[in-house]
Design a protein around this nucleic acid. Structure first.
Lengths: 149, 149
DNA sequence: CGCAACTCAGTTGCGCACAACTAATTGTGG
DNA sequence: CCACAATTAGTTGTGCGCAACTGAGTTGCG
């Protein structure tokens, strides 16, 4: 029988850690004029350009309600362009502009800064990442059993 | 030299896990008509009633910009009352109403549901919680060195 | 073919998070 | 005592995150 005490709860730890990391990113990303979710989209595009909104949503677990305005802001900032697909006019392909590609250089140092801030060695990062992925998987499965999509 | 690849990043794992847990809470808290941050405030008050806004903010790491409207909603819902302190009229004390106290019974089962969803034993929870706390500590210290408050 | 079911992006509305600010009160040094 | 700094809660504005919905486009099936 678990208690209702705040300090016992793993979830609060997760919530606090996530906000701490985001607030560090806020400082680090100031130079690039990006928010953390915007940075995630840029990461995804730097890895593979010319993606559909649907694909970005699948990778980042974000729906169009979040992505559409975010992508609009990235486009206004001149980092990406959006083109409706000719062969399927429901889809929109997101591509990096030259400025968007160039921004990658300014981002090169970020992972190391974040890594240093976490003071974890590579093995520690890998282990924690694995545990978090397992947790996410487990929690999502449980939620879908409770409230089917 | 860390890479800019999305899957390498611990931060994304953290971000994903935190959102997964919150979305599970959304389902579980539907009965209580609470959001997760509202639930956190109620947890804090169930543990110790009659707290200043400042104290709640310190415990949950939330500022008045988040807490003030949240508390207003909890008051509108009839769960808490707010009273400006007589001895220091800058401060506001938040207290549970009878309905707020009664809601605790409906929340009793929640920690176990969340615990089951995470499929971690007590030791696993404790270990992960400790790791997350250490991570939060480390990241916050680093951020404050970078951008002093 | 015709039309219902589905897909995809976008919009709307709400509640955080947080920066920046305001207003009121309290504390402090000269 | 009084000007000035500090404290406390609240407000405003922006950007997620997500549910619910819209509308255009596509697919499938009789």
């Amino acid at each position: 029988m678990a208690s209702l005490r705040l300090d016992d709860q793993l979830c609060f730890g997760l919530y606090a850690a996530s906000r701490a990391v985001t607030s560090l990113y806020r400082v680090v990303l100031e130079d690039l004029d990006l928010t953390y979710p915007q940075y995630l989209v840029m990461l995804a595009l730097w890895e593979r350009d010319h993606r559909l909104v649907k694909e970005l949503g699948a990778e980042l677990n974000l729906d169009s309600g979040t992505l559409s305005p975010l992508l609009k802001r990235l486009q206004t900032a001149g980092l990406v362009v959006r083109n409706r697909q000719a062969d399927d006019e429901r889809s929109v392909r997101v591509s990096l502009s030259d400025a968007g590609k160039a921004l990658r250089d300014k981002a090169q140092g970020i992972p190391d800064v974040i890594g240093a801030a976490m003071s974890l060695d590579d093995a520690g990062v890998a282990r924690m990442r694995a545990e978090l992925d397992r947790l996410t998987e487990s929690v999502n499965a449980y939620r879908e059993a409770l409230a089917p999509a």
